[in-house]
């Protein structure tokens, strides 16, 4: 098996569930000159068909279950899910709201949980790095 290139080129799909947009700002901060994750080959693709890592901020509600499942299904293998922020991990401060189902793991399997409210860019990047490791494992398993 040739060397895996996933760690050199992890492409991300960022999906914003029921978030307050706090975590989203932090995700975008990772792309700015201060953090510049493109240095590591990370690309924010905006398209499940191109993505390796599904990065979800915010929690699951009645209306976005279908969307998250479709996006996850449409990502080609191998793929991992990174839940960013308290909301994505467990529902966060919205957990008790009438329309909220809970964390992302209620609908798709989550590989990495990134805590924080909001999650800091450093920990988001750390989460992605852990995601890459999980990606690598999945690739080995399927190979």
């Amino acid at each position: 098996m040739p060397m895996s290139l996933f760690k050199r080129s992890p492409w991300i799909l960022h999906y914003d569930g029921s978030s307050c947009n706090g975590c989203d700002i932090e995700v975008l901060a990772c792309l700015t000159p201060l953090y510049d994750v493109e240095r590591f080959g990370v690309v924010n693709t905006g398209n499940p068909k191109h993505a390796d890592i599904l990065l979800v901020t915010g929690s699951v509600n009645e209306r976005n279950i279908e969307i998250i499942q479709n996006l996850y299904r449409q990502m080609p293998d191998p793929k991992v899910v990174v839940a960013v922020g308290a909301c994505a991990c467990s529902g966060g401060i919205f957990a008790r709201a009438y329309n909220i189902q809970g964390g992302i793991d209620q609908v798709v399997p989550v590989d990495v949980y990134v805590p924080g409210c909001a999650a800091r860019p450093e920990s988001i990047i750390d989460g992605v790095v852990s995601g890459i490791a999980a990606l690598e494992q999945k690739r080995k398993r399927s190979a």
Partner: peptide, 11 residues
């Protein structure tokens, strides 16, 4: 790297 990775992914 990108193209190499794409070949390692499912189509």
């Amino acid at each position: 790297y990108d193209v190499g990775k794409l070949f390692q992914k499912e189509a």
